[in-house]
Nucleic acid binder design. Structure first.
Length: 269
DNA sequence: AACGTGTCCAACCGCACCGAC
DNA sequence: GGTCGGTGCGGTTGGACACGT
């Protein structure tokens, strides 16, 4: 055991001696934490826990604040746009949840991680394949993501067109992901509600080149409105893409989607 | 109504990193 | 260079809840 590990063990032993509380937070504890941070700000979590009168570790206080009590935490279902972003960014960075969360304002790394485990990994399990396998990644890239784009577009088309204008007026940049759908028409989806003015999107997409100049099949692209992505790669999934409507937004695959996907997946194994 | 099973998510855990001393 | 305190990250778990039988 190295010095750092010893230090961690010693601190945990000290925690036990103080009889720190664990488990779910009470309303009273939440109020103490919120009020203390409102008066003194966040940071220095161990001393914060002490001075706020909370019998919790600093780590516990930090986690509670960041994942639950922070005023800008977004709650509720992950939107289609957010699902698409998660898939995109995960394909690039893997399980770098905090980095992915930086590009989904109001969403926590914990929430994204939970989403991935409960939704995406569940589908991988149902398809009887490893979530890290090429087959599963291809399925995401060539089937789920284009389908999400179409559904986002359908939603945009049926909703008020004032949204984008309003977002522009309050200074939120509009970033779009564009794809070529499988029938060779161009599809563009705006992610304006997800990208904060301070997010470093150039970090994600800083080295983008046109698809026809990149020979790497695993390459994905995203850009300002006007460029294109190509997820088709000659695979013919048009019946699936065209045949399913009325899909609920909280899951990116409904039952029919999944059955078709399972057939396509087995066929292409 | 009672029970079993599956799902979801808040919270915890272990580890690593960093800066100060 | 070693130690310590603070912090952040990714993986895991436990319990509440929903749903089916």
């Amino acid at each position: 055991m190295d010095a750092k590990a010893k230090g961690n063990v010693r601190r945990e032993e000290e925690d036990d001696q103080i009889e720190l509380r664990r488990g779910p937070w009470t309303v009273e504890e939440d109020l103490k934490l919120v009020n203390y941070i409102a008066s003194h700000g966040e940071g220095r979590w161990n001393s914060l826990a002490l001075f706020a009168g909370l019998k919790r570790t600093g780590k516990s206080c930090r986690l509670r604040w960041l994942n639950y009590l922070r005023p800008d935490v977004r709650r509720g279902n992950i939107t289609l746009e957010e699902q698409l972003l998660i898939l995109e960014l995960h394909s690039r960075w893997g399980n770098r949840w905090s980095k992915i969360a930086q590009h989904l304002p109001g969403r926590t790394d914990n929430e994204i991680k939970n989403y991935w485990r409960t939704r995406v990994q569940k589908h991988a399990k149902q398809l009887k394949c490893d979530v890290n396998s090429k087959q599963f990644k291809d399925t995401m890239r060539y089937l789920w993501m284009p389908r999400l784009v179409e559904r986002i577009q359908a939603g945009i088309a049926s909703s008020s067109s004032t949204t984008a204008t309003a977002m522009g007026q309050i200074g939120i940049p509009q970033v779009a992901l564009s794809y070529n759908t499988l029938d060779n028409s161009s599809t563009t989806v705006s992610l304006e509600t997800q990208i904060s003015p301070t997010s470093d999107f150039s970090d994600c997409y800083g080295n983008i080149v046109p698809i026809n100049e990149n020979t790497n099949p695993d390459y994905f692209q995203a850009s300002q409105i006007g460029s294109s992505n190509d997820y088709s790669h000659g695979m013919d999934f048009q019946p699936w893409l065209r045949g399913v409507d009325n899909i609920t937004s909280d899951h990116f695959l409904d039952c029919d989607d999944f059955l078709f996907l399972q057939q396509q997946f087995n066929f292409n194994m």
